[in-house]
């Protein structure tokens, strides 16, 4: 069954050692990740934040075992992550629940793959769904659920197999702002119970600060670690935490780091604290002149 609360796992230690990921060959090769070294301690909630296309998803996919490293190594508790497995649970941004299975069956799936017997599976799934506040929907099909509900199912489905680490790839990116805030609160509460290692990808600064123990900032492509920012804010964190001075200082720091990289990703640069490198001067003649 699922390990709850304070079973302080010595498991869930991710080590990324000088990872480099390159796609394609020769001229058309793209270097997505370039010499990244980072770690997730057991039970830690770590976020990676960076501009679009910086390679953070690729990094996550290497940890998940979907993409092989071109150089360097990624290990989980000493084992290299060359194949996907139930030790690394994953929550995706897109719709990833199995449409032909009911909500409960979706949650049971990992347990079924492990060979757990039917009635055991069912009660385990029900417990998890209860935690997610979705018990009344166990026999619904994913189609019938809203986005937020589906992600809740996705999270407990990934947790059902008691993975060492939970990999989350911008799981709330497709949701509207209000739902996102609620989901962050749900996630952080769930995490407090299991204290499982989490590697979380996002481009939402507030999200990363609210949820994490540490935040890595990645550069624009080819991705490298630009900075590592600890988040010493006390837990449990609530919406009120977001207005403390400490929070705002961290946010300000992260924002500057991110802006720099975002601009680079778009081909511009930070100049005097503002936008630079975009030399389009449309005079009084208007756009017509340019064409």
């Amino acid at each position: 069954m699922i390990s709850v609360a304070n079973q302080a796992s010595v498991r869930g230690h991710i080590l990324v050692d000088h990872l480099r990921v390159r796609f394609g060959h020769d001229r058309s090769a793209v270097e997505a990740v370039s010499d990244v070294s980072m770690a997730v301690q057991p039970g830690e909630f770590v976020s990676i934040i960076g501009p679009s296309g910086c390679g953070k998803s690729t990094l996550l996919n290497v940890v998940a075992g979907f993409v092989p490293p071109s150089a360097g190594q990624v290990t989980l508790d000493g084992k290299t992550t060359d194949k996907p497995g139930a030790d690394r649970g994953m929550v995706f941004q897109q719709y990833s629940l199995f449409p032909w299975m009911s909500v409960r069956r979706n949650v049971e799936f990992g347990l079924k793959m492990q060979g757990m017997e039917k009635s055991q599976r069912q009660s385990a799934a029900r417990t998890l769904l209860g935690l997610a506040g979705l018990l009344g929907f166990e026999n619904h099909y994913p189609e019938q659920l809203s986005g937020g509900m589906r992600q809740r199912v996705g999270i407990v489905r990934a947790l059902a197999t008691s993975p060492q680490v939970l990999l989350m790839d911008e799981p709330f990116g497709a949701l509207d702002a209000q739902t996102r805030v609620v989901m962050q609160q749900i996630l952080t509460r769930m995490w407090q119970r299991f204290r499982i290692s989490v590697l979380f990808i996002t481009h939402d600064i507030d999200e990363s600060i609210f949820l994490s123990d540490r935040v890595y900032v990645m550069t624009a492509r080819p991705g490298r670690i630009k900075a590592e920012i600890p988040i010493p804010l006390p837990r449990p964190r609530t919406p009120d935490t977001a207005i403390t001075a400490e929070y705002l200082a961290i946010k300000h720091k992260l924002r500057n780091l991110i802006s720099e990289e975002s601009l680079k990703a778009m081909g511009g640069e930070l100049k005097d604290g503002g936008l630079g490198g975009f030399d389009i001067d449309v005079g009084p003649q208007g756009v017509a002149e340019l064409i």
Partner: peptide
């Protein structure tokens, strides 16, 4: 493909992916 990936992170092997994901899909 996301469904297949999801199944693999839930511990399904190739045959299980075929039976429980590819076939119903």
């Amino acid at each position: 493909p996301v469904l297949i990936r999801a199944a693999r992170t839930l511990g399904a092997n190739a045959i299980q992916v075929f039976l429980y994901i590819v076939l119903p899909g």
